[in-house]
């Protein structure tokens, strides 16, 4: 039965595969084709220019800057978000003090925390970005107001107006808005880990630290890996674009001195503001390469024997 299995599976998937080919694969091929043209995006008249766009890209400082930011996003965002979410989920589900009747329990009020953490997930990313734009307002925003309220009148950072801080501000918003989802996801994963493992570990005198690294994390690995991929998509795709565009750049271009430009934003600006759709697809191809390498790394690192329980 092993023979012809792919063909068998493809037979079932013919309709989705066809859609996938038309709406995903074909546009990819087209994009790669357009990356060798000088298409403006505003008229149907364009010609092949060979590797000119690629040459231009390699000499383009802004491209390298945005690549750097995107790589930073894709490395840091999943790491910080997932670590934070794991910690919070562990505290909510397992990390509490022992109480009567239950071997393991979350910290007090964990039900409330679970809802509170999930709350940002309900808001659209555009609204989150707008809200934080108000909070980061250095002149009358909530954060600087809080700083002066506790007597830090001299510490009034410019936040989104400071090239050294802006990128971190944007990242913090993305973490804030996504961590709750993973808390809930990991909580669900933790709930399916049999309690006896914890009981056994506790009998052997394991502390919270050990239980987490020896029991929770290994049994949760599949979920963490899925989260990793999801965060990668977010860091390279629409969410990163949206927060950067709304919070720092705006429609006409902005943000302090290119300090927050990310690849998807640069693609958008080149195509729709500068009317250089051909060059934009070239940057798009670069984005594709980054994404592919991320996917390769994740699947490689994530390969690991699965524990059945």
């Amino acid at each position: 039965m092993q023979h012809g299995k792919y063909r068998f599976i493809v037979g079932f998937l013919i309709a989705p595969l066809a859609l996938y080919a038309i709406f995903v694969i074909w546009p990819f091929i087209q994009s790669i084709y357009y990356s060798f043209t000088d298409w403006t995006g505003l008229s149907s008249d364009f010609k092949m220019v060979g590797f000119d766009n690629y040459k231009k890209m390699f000499e383009d400082d802004i491209f390298w800057k945005s690549l750097q930011h995107s790589v930073l996003f894709v490395l840091l965002l999943p790491l910080v978000t997932l670590a934070l979410a794991l910690f919070l989920a562990f505290m909510i589900n397992v990390g509490g003090r022992q109480r009567k009747g239950a071997t393991i329990a979350g910290v007090r009020g964990s039900g409330f925390y679970k809802i509170a953490y999930f709350f940002p997930q309900v808001l659209s990313i555009a609204i989150v970005a707008l809200l934080f734009q108000f909070a980061y307002n250095p002149e009358s925003g909530a954060i600087n107001a809080a700083l002066s309220a506790v007597g830090l009148d001299n510490v009034q950072p410019l936040w989104l107006g400071d090239p050294d801080l802006a990128l971190w501000c944007v990242m913090a918003v993305l973490i804030w808005s996504t961590v709750g989802f993973f808390v809930v996801l990991f909580s669900a994963g933790m709930a399916s880990i049999p309690k006896d493992y914890y009981e056994a570990a506790l009998l052997d005198g394991a502390d919270r630290f050990t239980t987490f690294f020896r029991i929770t994390l290994p049994l949760l690995w599949d979920t963490v890996q899925a989260g990793w991929i999801y965060m990668g998509i977010l860091a390279l795709g629409a969410e990163a674009f949206a927060v950067v565009q709304i919070m720092t750049v705006g429609p006409g271009g902005g943000g302090p001195d290119y300090s927050t430009t990310v690849l998807p934003l640069y693609v958008y600006q080149t195509a729709f503001r500068d009317a250089q759709a051909g060059y934009a697809t070239t940057i798009g191809v670069a984005l594709l390469v980054v994404t592919l390498s991320f996917a390769a790394v994740v699947t490689k690192l994530g390969r690991r024997e699965r524990l059945e329980f």
Partner: peptide
């Protein structure tokens, strides 16, 4: 494997650049 591979493929497609090409430049 199937799930993993399709996840990997899905990952490639999401931050897609294909929106550009959708403005087909036919004359």
């Amino acid at each position: 494997d199937l799930i993993k591979r399709s996840a990997a493929v899905g990952l490639i497609t999401v931050p897609t650049m294909s929106f550009l090409a959708s403005c087909a430049s036919s004359d």
